[in-house]
Design a protein around this nucleic acid. Sequence first.
DNA 1: GGATTAAATCAAATTATTTTGATTTAATTA
DNA 2: TAATTAAATCAAAATAATTTGATTTAATCC
Lengths: 116, 116
Amino acid sequence: MIKVLPIFSSVESQVDFSKYELQFKALADQKRLQIMYELTQKGSVCVCDLVDIVNMPQSKLSYHLKILLDANLITKETKGTWSYYELNHEEVNRLLSPELCCIFRKSENQSSGCCS
Amino acid sequence: MIKVLPIFSSVESQVDFSKYELQFKALADQKRLQIMYELTQKGSVCVCDLVDIVNMPQSKLSYHLKILLDANLITKETKGTWSYYELNHEEVNRLLSPELCCIFRKSENQSSGCCS
DNA sequence: GGATTAAATCAAATTATTTTGATTTAATTA
DNA sequence: TAATTAAATCAAAATAATTTGATTTAATCC
């Protein structure tokens, strides 16, 4: 039995960038960065409050929250009819430089590690 | 004279995210991440070679290179009719975590700082 | 100068993302 | 149970990003 190997016309990338594409897409929007920033400042926020904080119609906010959630940049906890969203610091730290993480860190916690 | 201050319906974001939006948009594409990866591996590459490396039509590659260049993620040097592109390591380091920067660093240089 | 090559630009077509307002789902309250 | 509230979903419209192939710009070579 002869195995026919696929022939590539050029060097193929060894790294799978699809996960990063998804995450950078989520970050690639000022509105979503602001949502992340507000979650940083306020900790855990429910959608009904976030609507006023970021001044967005509910369905629009829901759309953007979903994109951030799918990218694992925020987490969600449901309590009754309320949904509380929080920043996923672990994932943000995994992705962004200390300098940038800093933006998504409350001032009282900025002494730990980064934000020199 | 009475000064009328603008009234905001909610807390406004103190941070200007427009620069980050531009940079994350540039990163938010597998093709562009691959271009960055190849520039990492090969150092300085001219467009005519890169066309074969990433297997893209010239005008398409030119479009994506411009997006990366505008985001300051790569640099360009023109020699005669050739254009040589290089990764802007400084800016990539400023933006991404050590873990991610690692992807955009040649293996022989991975001992310095990150890539544990 | 004329031909050749590299790379940028352009306009049109295609594809993807975002916005909008209405509707649905589901939990809570009276 | 009916009314209310929170949040997700949906479909259509509006915007934005990408692809394509042709054209342009500009440097080099004969």
